[in-house]
Design a protein around this nucleic acid. Structure first.
Lengths: 261, 261
DNA sequence: CGAATTGTTGATTCCCCTCAAACTGGGTGG
DNA sequence: CCACCCAGTTTGAGGGGAATCAACAATTCG
């Protein structure tokens, strides 16, 4: 019986899935949150200074992951959250027919692995789309720390809740938008996240293939490509392979006219 | 800028939305978890006995909600989770064009309102599809209690994580399944949840309209109706308005062939 | 009872998937 | 060096599945 049928119904049984070793090396380096360049982007966001000092008490291990390497695999035992320090990841899971379903892209400061808490094993795989580095946050230790610290606990709850909201939005997108609206929403989301991270909001390099975008947005790679071309003809953007320059952000915004909560 | 664009990027700013009063009355009755008939279905699921006693320390208020009434509204200040004691709810949000997007149905024992934690206001509305009763769990108190109790905190984290998994599955459904697969998955999910609650797994009354099912599954009400008829012709089930009897569960299972994680 | 809501079914349209072919840039090896 | 391959992308042609528009039946409700 699949997770669709069981997600809410059989709450706490651990799921038994084949174990596969993760391929990325563990780095001996350890970081303090208070000296991290990510600052407010990451876990400590919204955390009081005193709580960040609590986070410092145990230093998080770092790990480098090269392009194409797997950080963790669907079914792996869940031990760590991973905060992206640099690079981009895709989160994916396998369907019965062997196709892969991409269900997220993670950039600097974003937390991966939240879906592992429910059953103690990762429900998705994380694969680096470019050379990347992550901060491994041991769930057990974070839990213990949060148990004595209401502030940290709230931050953690909010991060989980934000993930729920993110998926709400994606569900709305998949359930009620056409191809142009989906791609416009995707590009504007990307643009916004890049801007927050200090990169250009209008000119950027896509880290993911057409097929990965298509999987994420629930359409085929051909339709993604065609929609890019259509946007270019409408003078909304310029695109050459993975290089994108947004010309008419307002036009793109109008192109996805739904209010996504 | 919509939540799609901001979900992960601007983490903790409270969102300002119009306030609307909730319409359901607050009941003076108060319940202890340890004496609740829901038992393992609800929040205490997976909680040690000693922790349930902790939950008993503050008694949760109950509230009756009649068919069609709103328990909480999108934009309302987030103060409570709600555990469904009886009845069925739909969770929905409004799109820019006035249509409503249904993003979940909640039955006995399930927790509503998890999406409110992120920004301190509810991101969706909850509406009773039949006369219902809920248990109002004050978030602040639950937080405080969990701060001194690692077990309870874990239960809470798992509930959030399960919600994330549920949405993963729905995203996969919306992104990669056709109408028949979607409806089959929906019916099998419903069947399973009813069975767990002691009802018949093969014969039940749908609490929601074709339009609500369609909104939830990302298809039109006409397509929902047609797909029901098609299943009936295939002798997979019998359907008369909202009364459903599953005849060939295996056949339905084959009808949605995807492995949803 | 008429009006409104909900559900079923039919006819038509159209968006996107599928299949297919061609192009690009990069890497490899003879 | 160029021929070759390969993965990724673009573009075209055609078909199918679901949306749209519409009519009608069944039920509920004021």
């Amino acid at each position: 019986m699949s997770a669709v049928l069981e997600a809410l119904a059989s709450p706490l049984e651990p799921r038994v899935l084949p174990q596969a070793p993760t391929s990325a090396p563990v780095m001996p380096l350890r970081m303090r949150c208070s000296s991290c360049h990510l600052g407010g982007l990451c876990l400590p966001c919204g955390t009081a200074v005193s709580d960040v000092q609590r986070l410092d008490e145990f230093r998080f291990g770092r790990r480098k992951v090269k392009t194409g390497q797997t950080l963790y695999r669907e079914g792996d035992r869940f031990q760590f959250f991973y905060a992206v320090r640099s690079g981009t990841f895709k989160s994916k899971l396998m369907l019965a027919d062997g196709r892969e379903q991409v269900n997220g892209f993670c950039m600097t400061g974003e937390i991966m692995g939240l879906d592992g808490v429910a059953y103690g094993s990762h429900a998705s795989s994380a694969i680096a789309l470019e050379d990347a580095e992550v901060c491994a946050i041991p769930y057990v230790q974070l839990s213990e720390l949060a148990a004595g610290n209401a502030g940290l606990q709230q931050v953690f709850a909010r991060i989980m809740s934000r993930e729920i909201l993110r998926e709400h939005s994606l569900m709305t997108l998949l359930g009620s938008m056409n191809a142009e609206e989906r791609l416009a929403a995707f590009l504007l989301n990307l643009s916004h996240r890049l801007k927050v991270r200090g990169y250009s909001a209008v000119e950027f390099h896509l880290r993911m293939s057409r097929a990965e975008i298509g999987s994420y947005l629930g359409m085929t790679l051909e339709t993604v490509s065609r929609t890019f071309s259509a946007f270019q003809q409408l003078r909304l953007l310029e695109v050459d392979k993975r290089h994108v320059r947004l010309i008419d952000v307002d036009g793109l915004t109008r192109a996805f006219k739904m209010r996504l909560n």
